[in-house]
Design a protein around this nucleic acid. Structure first.
Lengths: 215, 215
DNA sequence: AGCATAGCCTAACATCCGTTAGCATGACAC
DNA sequence: GTGTCATGCTAACGGATGTTAGGCTATGCT
């Protein structure tokens, strides 16, 4: 009855990015993240999370008002960090759309290799949130997507890319990066840098980039 | 508390492929599929499935021995159908690796557009199965992956592709197709054929295919 | 007519769920 | 020393969970 297989290859390593969190909340979030990544949100009970923290079940309610609030904060941190990765990559990048595609994809993939658990939960349990909790998170998600689409459009109008379809290209680049979180494990066959660089090259090829931008 | 958003864009349309199933089992499986696609396996109870079929909860046990057995049959059908799509595409395809990549990717994507619910559940709830139920399903999954990797290797050795990395290429092609099931909806901006053909072209570009195979 | 069988039902079990209420403890400010 | 507050605890609530047991009814074969 208990699932015996794991949903991710990665084990716990820096499961959460640095964020302004009380120590107690950080422990709770990291524990909830680990359990939800393995069993899913519905399959993880408040008592599971608490006892894995060395607490009694109801004690968790002195830190979070509800189970949903725990998930909401996890997903918020995940999306914020993803947007931070992507935005930071844009900031120290030449204005060449080819370099920007490389930077965006590299940051996107690096987020999924650096925080595989967070990425898996973020993309698997989003629909468990109520509409009010979901809205601000979806807005963050759309910002990161919009950056990618803007780059593609700039590259297309400058005839640097031979784009088949902007929307489908963005979906494909995003989707292939997303999946990395499920199989990547540090210490495995590939380093995070290798995966990120390779996927960045995939993205350029997929867009029909004419020549390599500065490596 | 109840999730308000949907995990897929698609609504029910031919949720299950034709398979040798008693009518009662078919109704149960299709209902379970629809509910699990929206709420997840853990979030769907045996009584939810039964009452949505017009039955009482325990009645379902005269058709399936356990809740896990329902999920296991769904995932088996999903993986079988995916492999059937891919295998059939290989059969009426020229031996040119470029045409084969096109055919494989087209079939892969078409599976995800034709059965989005099945694809989502298949890829989201796999880890809920016990090891015994999981093993035969994983073996089917690996067969489809192996076909893709074999094509890539053949194209590489014949210098038709400029492959950066075989394994990562296969992971990227598979991953971008996987994600289609989450956003595709019939009647939306794209037809299934357009998405499948575009992704097939993406796959060829990603592999560095030298020239277009027969379209 | 008699009987098997398939399909459905209700009742019930033990356990788990998210959550609330109310109390104990220990650190720290005045 | 006394009050305050954060942080933990146990007990308990109403309801949902997967599953089992046992019985009813209608169809169809002999």
């Amino acid at each position: 009855m208990t699932p015996t297989s794991r949903r991710l290859a990665a084990t716990a390593h820096a499961p959460l990015p640095e964020a302004a969190l009380s120590p107690a909340r950080r422990v709770i979030l990291e524990t909830a993240l680990r359990l939800c990544a393995e069993r899913g949100y519905s399959g993880t009970s408040i008592r599971d999370i608490a006892t894995a923290c060395g607490l009694q079940g109801p004690t968790l309610y002195s830190h979070y008002p509800s189970k949903e609030a725990v998930l909401a904060e996890l997903l918020r941190i995940g999306h914020d960090e993803h947007l931070r990765y992507v935005s930071a990559a844009m900031l120290d990048c030449e204005p060449d759309p080819r370099a920007q595609i490389r930077a965006w994809t590299n940051a996107h993939v690096r987020f999924h290799t650096d925080f595989p658990m967070l990425a898996v939960v973020t993309n698997t349990e989003l629909h468990m949130l109520s509409a009010e909790a979901l809205a601000p998170i979806l807005s963050v998600r759309k910002q990161a997507e919009q950056i990618l689409r803007d780059i593609i459009e700039r590259g297309r109008t400058r005839k640097l890319f031979q784009v088949i379809d902007s929307w489908l290209s963005a979906a494909a680049i995003g989707g292939m990066g997303l999946r990395v979180a499920f199989w990547f494990a540090p210490g495995g066959s590939f380093t995070a840098a290798t995966v990120a660089d390779t996927y960045a090259e995939f993205a350029l090829r997929l867009l029909g980039a004419q020549a390599r931008a500065s490596s």
